[in-house]
Design a protein around this nucleic acid. Structure first.
Lengths: 193, 193
DNA sequence: TCAATTTCTTAACTTTTGTTATCGTTTTTT
DNA sequence: AAAAAACGATAACAAAAGTTAAGAAATTGA
């Protein structure tokens, strides 16, 4: 069953007992979501995060009528517009599924209740977000340090699955470049080395 | 006294009592650091974070012999190479003071002890890092969404102090561009609007 | 299945940014 | 105070990325 995945995640990060975990899991709701479903429209406050059992979820902004992808979530990740979820302010990002998904939904209120019942949740979330922070910081650094081509190679190395399951123009915007530019980079790479 | 600053930070974020805070503060060491002191060399594991009472601290990487600034910390911020501090892996970044600084040093071990003594520290750090995460995510998003000129204007709006206390070529690398390019952007901006 | 849409590539051209170098100016260092 | 180093503006040229457009291939949906 899908809940195994999240149980393992919990166990790896913090010392919840099996009995505690049983209670914790009651605060998550299993949901199946069709491809191309919008989970959050920009401008709304994010009230949910999604632990992905399978499928792929995209975070994106609209700028000058164009959709720019800012992150891709896949299996075993908590997907969501964290910034809005945390700050309780309207999100600049929208969220949509790129594939049919099976997820565990955790609402803001459910999380608050979990904090109240299990203070240990603070440790769990602290460690989870520390992990995500390190990843995000790394990603951010690579936008300062590396050019588009290097960033593409990085992505290929760090998350090769993405390149096969996500349309190229969405990858391009995630890399901060245009689809045309990404096409040129790929062209260069097959020829040169 | 400088410790007022950190006490207020604590109080704003979590419900520590005055007596608890007195104990907590014993784990911080006050330090004065001269301008241009290197606090961490890339390749080492970061064992300290620094709450800045006054002064300015820079995070940077060296790439092809060039120093690229990836973040600037100022008053009331916890400065440090979080990714290394958290992951306990060698840091790709170095840290140095840009000005004479007065800081409160917290070592990794001291923090571990604080977690053990005050489980509430988990809540404090969770909320602190959530805040930093939101800021970092916003910054990251602006590298995908905005061009260099917009990013410069953003910086001018969000952290105007930086433009006056930090050399322009360091600002440039933080914006992901060359000093020459930043000079052009500034030139454009004074003429046009 | 077949038409419509989406996706990717390629090309020609424009704009922006990077590179290198020069030249005052300011700041450090001795 | 003088010498050295660092800093920022500018120019000229090269390289890279953006823009627009056209066309082939793949996907989607009816």
């Amino acid at each position: 069953m899908g809940k195994d995945l999240i149980i393992n995640s919990f166990k790896q990060i913090t010392g919840f007992t099996d009995i505690e975990l049983e209670t914790v899991l009651k605060y998550f709701e299993t949901k199946k979501i069709k491809k191309k479903s919008v989970l959050l429209h920009a401008g709304k406050v994010a009230n949910e995060v999604y632990f992905i059992i399978n499928g792929c979820i995209r975070l994106f902004c609209v700028k000058d009528g164009e959709e720019l992808s800012t992150y891709f979530f896949t299996e075993k990740m908590f997907a969501g517009a964290y910034d809005s979820f945390i700050s309780r302010k309207p999100s600049r990002h929208s969220i949509e599924t790129l594939e049919d998904c099976q997820v565990l939904v955790l609402t803001y209120q459910a999380l608050e209740e979990l904090y109240a019942i299990f203070p240990k949740m603070n440790e769990f979330v602290r460690k989870s977000i520390e992990e995500r922070f390190v990843i995000l910081h790394d990603l951010f650094t690579s936008y300062i340090l590396n050019g588009p081509e290097e960033r593409y190679l990085n992505l290929q190395k760090e998350r090769p699955d993405l390149l096969n399951r996500i349309p190229q123009h969405q990858i391009a915007s995630f890399l901060g470049i245009t689809p045309v530019s990404l096409s040129r980079i790929r062209n260069r790479l097959v020829k040169k080395p």
